[in-house]
Simulated assay, not measured.
Amino acid sequence: MGTAVPLTLFDPPTTPAPPPADGLLRVREIYAEPAALDSTRGRRVLGRFPEAEVIEVPSHWRIPELHGNAGNVDRWVRVKTETLVLGVKKSLSARPNSRSSNWIAPSTANGCAMACAYCYVPRRKGYANPITVFTNIEQITGYLRRHVARQGPKAEPDQCDPVSWVYDIGENSDCSVDALVSDNVADLIATFRGLPTAKASFATKFVNRQLLDLDPAGRTRVRFSLMPDPDAKLLDVRTSRIDERIGAIDDFVEAGYEVHLNFSPVVLRDGWEADWTALLRRLDDQLTPRTKAQAAAEVILLTHNRDLHEVNLGWHPKAEDLLWRPEVQQPKRSQNGQWNVRYRNDVKRAGVERLQELVATTAPWLRIRYAF
């Protein structure tokens, strides 16, 4: 059990509390490592949530009240709403990648206040998955600058980008939501603004218009995740609705972001082709020529997990009617060694090919960077 720490031990807040986001965050308790509490970034996060109880813990990974506590299944959304964790990122490394980015940057956060039923991040944390903010942002951005410098200019184009090294800064979280909690995302965007050979990238399901004021200067790529609205209403719990995400795309392009589309996950079910065709037509009708000229997309068919399936049965069983379909799925070992399930090879191949055909005929301006 952690120890409650009085907030008066820390400096007064220097960052005002963000405006409420439709009840997404109503933080009542903050678990924090001592080093995170003693940092400038940690104090500023605490200043945004002055009424929260602060509980000191030895490690952001060792919180029995959260991790592995099966009793939290029926509090799945409440924990995401009311709890934050502050920690220090101790191991800094950029992992090679070859799909959405060239490198996975060291995390500045993990977990999420949203509750997408297919999210893979909870598989590592057990029964709770609130936002953990890493407060040693200066170390992380310093590491990234040095890593980019070591790469030198990009020698030849690849599917990630024709001229820049691309770093995914949001593998384990949603940066648009993280920006409601701390200035880490603003610092990352500012860092890449000064790196002419690299750009940041993150996927998001949340429209945070505060990001429009950060002047990315074309060095940050936002990948808006999209799926047909009937799927999103069931699976994308606590996210911005699809019409809001589409409505923000042109605005982010105008603000200096590169904006790509993330068709993920593609869920194969009765009527999926008609619903995806309607979504693609809407994009074709609504997006400006400037947005279309710089757009690209990635296509990712659903991957699921037995442990997450069991968790979902405890708080959102209706989602599993779409996600858990053993008659068309097969086991797959992931890169981190976990056993997941995905569509059978023949089912997946046919689904990928059909969606590519729909894009080619309905939104021919949209280049697909990769599909799997």
Rank of each mutant, 00 (worst) to 15 (best):
T8P: 11
F10E: 08
F10V: 05
D11Q: 14
T14L: 07
A17T: 11
L24F: 00
V27H: 01
E29G: 10
I30Y: 06
I30P: 01
E33A: 03
A36R: 01
T40Q: 14
G47N: 02
V54W: 00
V57P: 02
S59M: 12
W61T: 15
R62P: 07
A70N: 11
N72P: 03
V73E: 10
V73W: 10
G87R: 01
S98D: 13
S100N: 11
N102S: 08
S107L: 15
T108K: 11
Y118M: 13
Y120W: 05
Y120V: 06
Y120H: 03
P122M: 00
N129L: 12
T141S: 07
T141Y: 06
G142I: 15
R150C: 07
P157L: 08
Q159L: 15
S164F: 11
Y167M: 00
E171C: 12
S173N: 15
S176C: 05
S176Q: 13
L188A: 03
F192T: 00
L195A: 12
R209W: 00
R221A: 14
S225A: 14
T239L: 07
R241I: 06
I249Y: 04
E254W: 04
Y257K: 01
V266P: 03
L268I: 04
R269E: 08
T277D: 14
R281P: 11
R282K: 15
L283G: 05
D285F: 01
P289H: 02
A295T: 02
A295Q: 01
N305C: 13
N305I: 12
N305P: 00
N305G: 04
R306T: 06
V311N: 15
L313K: 07
L322P: 02
L323I: 06
Q329W: 05
P331Y: 00
S334L: 09
K348C: 07
V352L: 11
R354P: 00
V359R: 04
A360E: 11
P364F: 07
I368E: 03
